[in-house]
């Protein structure tokens, strides 16, 4: 029953040969087999959102997918965000706005925001709040996370010229 399944996992454009049980969640395999521990596990029942990653462009809970299901998919995690020492704009916006304290939920929020804004680059304030309500943070009270998203949206709409809801 606990037979291992060998397959290739593509994470942050790198291929990882893994051999895991079918029941192992994508979160656990990314952390333990790929050694990418930036994806944090907070509840394992899909509510807290700390393990949010991007699979084929969509933000998903890595605790609610089995790793075998990610075969052939493009997985993106927090480790793929910064370019060396240079933070991604979403990461920088968090730092600029003190959008993180203990930092445990932060990778999940960053991946959620990154994917959601790739899908909808110019959200309204209401859409931002609705999107952020998917993940839990116990430290910040969300206000500074909201401000970070606003900064990021402002920066990226400036550069792309996209203005939808101004």
């Amino acid at each position: 029953m606990s037979d291992k399944i060998p397959f290739t996992l593509n994470v942050n454009s790198r291929e990882y040969q893994v051999s895991v049980e079918a029941r192992q969640t994508l979160a656990d395999v990314i952390r333990e087999e790929c050694g990418l521990t930036g994806t944090r596990v907070g509840c394992e029942h899909g509510v807290c959102g700390s393990c949010t990653i991007i699979v084929d462009g969509a933000p998903v809970r890595a605790c609610l997918m089995f790793a075998v299901q990610a075969e052939g998919k493009e997985v993106r995690t927090i480790e793929g965000m910064a370019d060396g020492e240079e933070l991604h704009s979403v990461q920088r916006a968090f730092s600029d706005n003190h959008g993180l304290q203990c930092g445990f939920c932060t990778p999940g929020f960053i991946m959620l925001i990154t994917a959601a804004l790739e899908q909808n680059p110019a959200p309204t304030d209401e859409e931002i709040r609705e999107m952020l309500s998917a993940n839990l943070c116990r430290c910040t009270g969300y206000q500074n996370i909201f401000n970070a998203v606003k900064q990021y949206v402002g920066e990226s709409t400036e550069t792309t010229g996209a203005h939808k809801n101004d």
Partner: peptide, 21 residues
């Protein structure tokens, strides 16, 4: 003052207890 803590937490490289392997 930008927090000393931020870089590792933002990039996922900081180690929480479950990250020790």
């Amino acid at each position: 003052v930008r927090r000393l803590e931020d870089y590792g937490l933002l990039t996922g490289s900081a180690h929480f207890v479950d990250d020790l392997q």
